[in-house]
Design a protein around this nucleic acid. Sequence first.
DNA 1: GAGTTTTTCAAACAAGCGTTTTAATTGATT
DNA 2: AATCAATTAAAACGCTTGTTTGAAAAACTC
Lengths: 223, 223
Amino acid sequence: MIATSTDVSKPKVATRKRLIDAAARLFALHGYNGLTMRSVALDAQANIAAANYHFGSKDAMVLEMLRERVQPINERRLELLNQAKNNQAGRPLTTHQIFHSLIFPIGEEISKSTKSRCSLAQLVARTFTEPVHFIEKMHQRFFSQIADIYYLELSLVYPNAPAREIYWHLHLAVSSMLGALAQHRRLNDFSRGHCAENDVGAMITRLIQFITHGFDRGIKTQF
Amino acid sequence: MIATSTDVSKPKVATRKRLIDAAARLFALHGYNGLTMRSVALDAQANIAAANYHFGSKDAMVLEMLRERVQPINERRLELLNQAKNNQAGRPLTTHQIFHSLIFPIGEEISKSTKSRCSLAQLVARTFTEPVHFIEKMHQRFFSQIADIYYLELSLVYPNAPAREIYWHLHLAVSSMLGALAQHRRLNDFSRGHCAENDVGAMITRLIQFITHGFDRGIKTQF
DNA sequence: GAGTTTTTCAAACAAGCGTTTTAATTGATT
DNA sequence: AATCAATTAAAACGCTTGTTTGAAAAACTC
């Protein structure tokens, strides 16, 4: 259908990839409703019917695009988490290590695509503020299991803290991360030029610290 | 035109108010692109042309709705901030006091409208993730001066910290606040029932603490 | 209560939406 | 070179969008 087993052809997969890339950029910029099949086709220099041919529908296209963008980040998260656990050799992790593994991979992906910089940050953030029916499809599919894993790790660090507190603070941490990603492009204006928004590394480092402090102190002052 | 000086009539202003309320709810639920004039008219039990008659256009209607929702919150913020300053009688404020005055008023407004609960949180948050052209209009109009005031207060608390650090951490604080508001409705699912999302007071209290810790420790560890 | 203004209403407008259809074109395998 | 599936292309489908129109209704003024 789409690709044979010995696939070395170029223009065939190219259109599909161009559509995905265009969809990613336009979704990040304008959200689900603001993304139109025509704008995607125009941006990808493809025909209006191409997207429907390759993906079947707008919904399917956007979900596939999100899958391709989110999956590598989630895989990297678990990789870093397991790496840290191996280094600790049985001793409990620090919350900084845990949040580092959660947030750092996003920074890596943002830095990779030097061209579309902020768009990935916005893309990830937008998946959490899009129209209800669409989030639910996506959120359950890509993030619910990750959330479970991180809850478990944090509850191991604070075995005496009640589940409610762990959940509350993890929720605040994740929400803060998403907020920071969503607002990042405003940093330059907001700071009146004092902070450069193209310094993704600085953003990620500070974000990890900020969230770690918020989480740790919030739990520790009670237990 | 719309209302005389001795205004005791009901149905005249009622339609306009019903439109604003409907616009607020639908904007919070579906965002700017997801809000349609027809859906607003239907929700407000008004004619399709009513909104255009009263406001001129969709853009003008939504901006007016935002103004009516955001302005009282901003006024209350400055009220609480000045209250705290008077209580301190010249001594520097604590960051907790500052962030309390920033965040608490939103909680008050959310609690007021018991009917549409989470919708205000989502509404405020959505104003920051909506299509670019629309944010810029709105953000500059309602939030830029507030940001300046809070930067100033925080720089008085940490007079030795460079402006860059204050801006960075304030940006993270505001972003976290917005993220938490945007994600609040997901709290119940996220925590697998451990945290009740209808407890707005608990959310606000924890959020203020979380952000204060993130801000304070981030600045203090460096200066 | 006539006259004027303000507000409501149903209907229609052009433009844009996701999707479908049908035909032309491509490219690899036979 | 011929064949056949995979892909692209142009045009149109039915539907929804924000906005406009012109007349009816309501409210207010004098």
